[in-house]
Simulated assay, not measured.
Amino acid sequence: MKTIILNQPEQFQLISREFNDELSENEVLLKIHRIGICGTDYHAYRGKQPFFSYPRVLGHELGAEIVALGKNVDSTQLKIGDKVSVEPYLNCGKCQACSNGKTNCCENIRVMGVHIDGGMTEYVKIPANKVHPSEILGYEDLALVETLAIGAHAVQRAGLSSNDIVMVIGAGPIGLSVIQFAKLHKAKIAVMDFNAQRLEFAQQLFQTDVSIQAKADYSTDDLRKDLNGVLPTVIFDATGNPQSMMKAFSYCAFGGKLIYVGLFQGDVTFFDPDFHKRELTLMGSRNAMASDFKMIIENMEKGNIDTKAWLTHTADFEDLPLVFNTWLDPQSQVIKAMLSIS
């Protein structure tokens, strides 16, 4: 079975390995057709991904085909030949978080491509409740669902209303997915990024209200000017950059919310008197829920979410070790890259 493994930072290898296709009673066997590349993969390649060890098979944004069912899988819900998106967060179902319905932050969670091997391979076995079928969408769309789900879950955490002034910091794929679902709440949306091309892309794709090109000395007063005298009531930081994440505290309106969608390996610090004076709310947003996947697929099928512009770079599976470095170059202007495997 063809597999790409990341042996250590900056060292991909295409290998062939044995695969046991025997299924447990509640598993399905998937043939992988499309693999989205995300920030987690880039961080792992650079050696900067939390919760990670080497060697590891990456890949958790997957468009796949069901090729076999375990004996207890409900064949009225899933069938051989179904095209599916994969929910790559394998939760234990027994811990306190799972008991409270917080499967996305299970105490014993195993995320494909992070804690366990992922989908950069020809076939994977996975619990049947972790696949979400569509009779309409193709493999590329299905591989994008997980990226969208990260943003959908963060927006759900924030509890947006049409009265909110939202600022999304970081206009990469995760930031764009946040914008996608914040737009559904009809909030005013500002986007901040160092990259002018990404700001332009976000404005063209979503008609965002304000574009802010970040710079080191950009201040709260500058932000007030750009937002006509006010500050954001809700800020989503999707950068995974410690300087950005800590500076975001100063951008929040009094009574505002700051949601960390990106993460980094390190400590976050803030000035407590200012945090209390403003009565800020700080939230983390991790992974997504099965309900997010179902909602996104339904909206994509209805045409409410258009992902065509997202996919900017593609490659054949076997070529990944050769092209991955080029996608890290800012000059390549990657929004979303994807692998095809036949």
Rank of each mutant, 00 (worst) to 15 (best):
K48Y: 04
K48F: 07
F51M: 14
F51R: 15
S53V: 13
Y54G: 09
L58M: 10
G59K: 04
H60P: 06
E61H: 00
E61G: 00
L62E: 06
L62W: 03
L62F: 04
A64M: 08
V67R: 09
L69R: 06
K71P: 02
D74P: 05
D74I: 08
T76E: 14
L78R: 04
I80T: 12
K83F: 04
K83A: 09
S85G: 14
V86M: 02
V86H: 04
E87I: 02
P88D: 10
C92P: 13
K94P: 04
K94S: 11
Q96Y: 13
A97P: 09
S99C: 12
S99W: 09
N100K: 15
N104W: 08
C105D: 15
C106V: 15
C106D: 11
I109E: 07
I109F: 04
R110Y: 06
R110N: 15
M112L: 15
G113R: 01
G113C: 10
H115E: 14
G119Y: 09
G119H: 08
T121R: 14
E122C: 06
V124A: 11
P127K: 02
N129F: 05
V131K: 08
V131S: 05
H132G: 01
P133M: 11
S134G: 06
S134K: 05
S134V: 10
I136F: 13
I136L: 11
I136Q: 11
I136W: 03
L137F: 03
L137N: 01
G138K: 04
Y139T: 00
E140Y: 06
D141N: 12
D141H: 09
L142C: 01
A143G: 07
L144K: 00
L144N: 03
L144C: 08
T147C: 06
G151N: 09
G151H: 12
H153Q: 09
V155D: 06
A158H: 02
L160F: 01
L160V: 08
L160S: 02
S161R: 03
S162M: 07
N163E: 14
M167L: 15
M167T: 10
V168A: 09
V168R: 01
I169N: 10
I169H: 02
A171F: 05
A171Y: 05
G172W: 09
G172S: 09
G172Q: 06
I174K: 02
G175S: 06
G175L: 12
S177I: 09
Q180G: 04
